[in-house]
Design a binder for these strands. Structure first.
Lengths: 226, 226
DNA sequence: GCGCCACCATGACTGAAGTCACATTCCCGT
DNA sequence: ACGGGAATGTGACTTCAGTCATGGTGGCGC
């Protein structure tokens, strides 16, 4: 696998406009780290060290309550960047990031990276674009959470995965616990709602294998909002 | 009042790094528009025309369901910018914006503005910073909505207003309806919770005048989460 | 003063979500 | 194959948010 720092950086669309020399400069100052599934890259509230690049693996951006409930704000698979926000606004990390696969990450020092942004306006514009995506995603999350039911969010999520798979059946990769965290609820509620969908004939679940039996029905469940 | 376009632009921190010529250039291409309270500047889903500057007045960024429930994502008072997101990522407006005061706004054409960003990397960095703020705000919103009760959010909001006022009493400027929209709920729930707070002796409400009677108690209500 | 209208209070009811407790099943390594 | 930890299914119960309906109150114009 591509273990060279510079190769890892080159894989990012975000850095497409940088030339070899610039990439090399960033790579030189970058610190590489490895993580196992479940390891913490950093915790909410800590001061920001720099820009993180997920070069291999994947990580989740997570908010956790003292009682242990979790909300997954986003999942970032390689190659991608995390912790852009605090790099640019100087504040602490707004959420924690946890590896969900064995992960290889690079840490770009803040000052160095900001300097590069000044030298390459296109770089900043790309980040602006990335921020836009994030913002949209969060707006959608907030909307669905305040207006919708879990049932709707679950239906939506299942449909989305089916679309990714291209057919109306797929394997759940997550545990129900993790799915619950993504949807902002708890395990039991997921289990129950899956059960209901099944009882209503919209779905068939066998182990982790999901088959959508009544796509139209499920879609109408997901739709009720907006 | 300051009715010159260029003066209006100069008032924004975001544009602090631009010199007179650059400001003038932006101002020349800008379109000025006026709105009354309740007017919509634009609706969610419409294609983005450019960057909006709230030069005078104030506006709310709002998501609305077909059933008429509203969620206020943010309130922007002059001088500030709205609709940054779609300017940079090219998508449609992610939410609607409505004037909540008589408002004077400028529309900067997208291409022209993006050109300025390329010429002035500092400008892009400032927007990156502004995006960071928005992102943090939305993360907080999502967190509070998924984990907290209305009671907590209300307590938090009251405390925040009291802090702004500097003393433990203040006037509610909003109708309960509007407050409800900001907290992501409906009028009745606000009314009830205010009633409870009052019954519990944490608060006294007279007309729109609010007096916090037991600050510590209210704070402990707000605290239950992170 | 009268009446209209927006705003606010409150009760009754419904349903969703969260919590606790426990049973069951699955997966994995030795 | 077995044993144990993790993951899942379910029931009982509580609390909170949302909806509907209804009545009160205050402000404002004429």
């Amino acid at each position: 696998m591509g273990r060279s720092k510079i190769e890892a950086l080159r894989a990012l669309d975000l850095f497409a406009m940088l030339d070899g020399g610039q990439l090399e400069q960033l790579a030189r100052g970058a610190v590489a780290k490895e993580y196992e599934t479940g390891d913490v890259l950093f915790l909410e509230g800590q001061p920001c060290q720099g820009l993180w690049i997920i070069a291999e693996g994947a990580a989740q951006i997570v908010k956790t309550t003292p009682q242990g409930r979790q909300l997954v704000l986003a999942t970032q698979a390689a190659p991608s960047a995390v912790a852009e926000v605090p790099v640019f606004d100087g504040g602490p990390y707004p959420a924690s990031v946890i590896a969900v696969q064995p992960t290889w990450a690079l840490l770009l020092l803040k000052q160095e990276f900001l300097g590069m942004c000044r030298a390459q306006p296109e770089l900043a514009l790309h980040f602006l674009q990335a921020f836009g995506k994030r913002l949209r995603h969060l707006v959608g999350l907030a909307e669905r959470v305040t207006f919708g039911t879990i049932r709707q969010r679950l239906a939506l999520d299942l449909l989305e995965r089916a679309n990714l798979a291209g057919v109306d059946s797929f394997q759940m990769e997550e545990t129900q616990e993790q799915l619950a965290a993504r949807l902002g609820t708890v395990r039991e509620v997921i289990s129950r709602n899956l059960g209901r969908f099944q009882a209503e004939g919209l779905l068939r679940v066998e182990r982790r294998a999901v088959v959508i039996a009544d796509r139209a029905g499920l879609e109408s469940e997901a739709a009720t909002e907006l």
